[in-house]
Design a protein around this nucleic acid. Structure first.
Lengths: 205, 205
DNA sequence: CCTACCGATCGGTAGG
DNA sequence: CCTACCGATCGGTAGG
């Protein structure tokens, strides 16, 4: 399932059009992480990509379709950088630690100019009803459910509450690092993840 | 130190102008909690207050001054609803619990149409350098330092890390509630606050 | 994928 | 606190 799956038939060589579309979406995700998904403007995106506004617009048909495609592209990026590499680790605590480490390492490496897309997008859209908000909420609900499932596998009690704590702490690290530029928040977040996973295991003994 | 302190001389009767200004700022804080502090538009704010755009504009001189005044008004609101009532409780764990309860109770009561101003404003401005970002960062740094100070009074080890956890969990409750409308996040957040404060105390025995 | 355009709205100003 | 404006930019369309 590559990023071009929606525009090219399975097995086909990606067309030039879908390569352009993928490049637009990569940039859209990065820009939205900085400006927010609503503040993302078609004109500005076109200027940065050195193409005409209407040329870019033709790929999507409306700003909302562009936003929905950007949410899907960001979800694909999250799967590739956080979820799938961690699936090499055994289910349960080890896999959760791998997910948290991959997420925090990416934040700390400053690979993304605007930090976490989901932190920016969820705050921007949480009070704007409609399909964009629903797509963001569905992605985050899925990852919370993934955390909860792995916590249950690890034998942690109150897995739903601990999943909320894990989510809060890694997102809190993103938020605090954006504002303070103090890397110690990553140490705090990693120590908290360690403690949550260790507490859970000792509780089952 | 009332909200009118900046426009009226100390002890003077608040003028009609400063009453209008205060009403503008109340609405600006509520609107910014929904639309973000950048998405807040002078035209829309004027329409909602049934006054002309330039009439409203005359109170501030620029959009940035309006945003800075809204940040200050939101800080005053936070002090009045969360910080000051908790100062009736003894310093340390009891005061922290009172602050967390006041914050979570206000979120759960849906008093604010857009949830927490600081969650929306910090995500919106964390990547926009300038005085607005600096004012938001300073307010949040102050409250984090307040939490840390009370944790030290309570004899909690690693007070800076636990302050980060407290911050992350109450902000996480705001974020999750905005998206899921599931009130169980407040139970999770309260249970986490209880555990953080209880762990800290037992660690000192 | 382009040029050329539309009505609406943005922040801000002139002058009262 | 108002009316009447300004240039810039917004999302979107026509026509190629």
């Amino acid at each position: 399932m590559a990023a071009t799956a929606q525009t090219d038939p399975a097995g086909a060589t990606p067309s030039k059009g879908s390569a352009t579309r993928a490049a637009i979406l990569e940039r859209a995700v990065d820009l939205a992480s900085v400006e927010g998904l609503e503040g993302l403007s078609i004109g500005r995106l076109a200027t940065e990509l050195e193409m005409s506004k209407s040329g870019l617009f033709a790929h999507f048909g409306s700003k909302q379709e562009l936003q929905l495609a950007a949410v899907e592209a960001a979800a694909e990026r999250f799967r590739q950088t956080v979820i799938e590499p961690a699936e090499a680790a055994p289910a349960g605590a080890a896999r959760l630690r791998a997910m948290a480490d991959a997420y925090l390492d990416h934040l700390e490496s400053d690979s993304y100019s605007g930090g976490c897309f989901w932190g920016a997008a969820s705050a921007d859209y949480d009070d704007r009803p409609g399909p964009v908000r629903d797509a963001i909420a569905a992605a985050l609900d899925l990852w919370l459910a993934t955390f909860e499932q792995q916590l249950e596998q690890a034998g942690v009690e109150q897995a739903d509450r601990v999943a909320f704590e894990l989510y809060s702490v890694v997102m809190g690290a993103n938020s605090r690092y954006r504002l303070s530029r103090d890397r110690r928040v990553f140490d705090h977040a990693r120590a908290t993840v360690d403690r949550l996973l260790a507490d859970g295991r000792s509780a089952t003994v």
